[in-house]
Computed example of a mutant assay.
Amino acid sequence: MSYKVSFLTRWSDFDPNNHLRHSAYNDYAAESRVRLFTKYGLSLKEFNKLHIGPVLFQEKTNFLKEIAMGEDIIVEVLLQGSSTEGERFKFLHNIYRSDGELSAQIEVFGAWMDLSKRKLTTPPPIIIEALKQMTKTDKFEIIPLPQHYPN
């Protein structure tokens, strides 16, 4: 079963056109990822203990239906891709209006960073296990790692 979070939207999430502002969608997607990892025992405190954190390379949002002032939302988080050792990841966030209509889709692509060395790294087993347990999209892909060239 996919991971879903319900949110009560806030007045500050809306723009002068009385619909959810573009950046609020991404804020709710990020909050959903934090909650999803917490479900797998990876709270922000635990990430700090492990000296690791996610870093995003790309964030792509497709807006499909308007979310009106005062409307609540549901965010679904799915794993869209991962490298074989979990070094890279892609998540898909489906954002639904309170009537169940798909309002937006957000794809994020990123990697794990060693917070001490400030370099990309392979995640520890607890993160790899969490990725394995996540619901995958129908378009799940194995992400190839970039080739490294000698200097």
Rank of each mutant, 00 (worst) to 15 (best):
G100M: 14
D114L: 15
H51S: 14
I143K: 03
S23V: 08
E107M: 09
N17F: 14
N48M: 08
Y25F: 15
P144A: 09
N62Y: 02
F14Y: 15
T122Y: 07
Y28V: 06
I52C: 14
K49V: 05
P124S: 08
D99K: 15
E71Q: 14
I143Y: 07
G53W: 12
S82P: 00
F109G: 00
T122L: 13
Y28M: 05
L44I: 03
S12G: 05
P123F: 11
P16M: 02
K132M: 08
H22R: 10
G70Q: 08
I52K: 08
E129H: 11
L8A: 09
M113K: 13
R97K: 15
D114P: 13
H93D: 03
E107S: 02
I67L: 08
E107T: 07
P150W: 10
G41T: 03
E101D: 10
V108R: 03
P54Q: 10
I142V: 15
G53D: 08
L120F: 14
D138W: 04
W112H: 12
I67W: 07
I128D: 04
F7D: 04
R88D: 01
G110P: 09
I143G: 03
N18Y: 10
D72Q: 12
I106C: 09
E31G: 00
P150M: 12
E141D: 09
F140Q: 06
G100C: 14
I143N: 03
K132P: 00
D27R: 12
K49P: 00
T84D: 07
R118S: 12
E76K: 08
L115P: 10
Y149F: 15
T135N: 06
P144R: 10
M69H: 11
K139W: 02
S32H: 01
I74V: 15
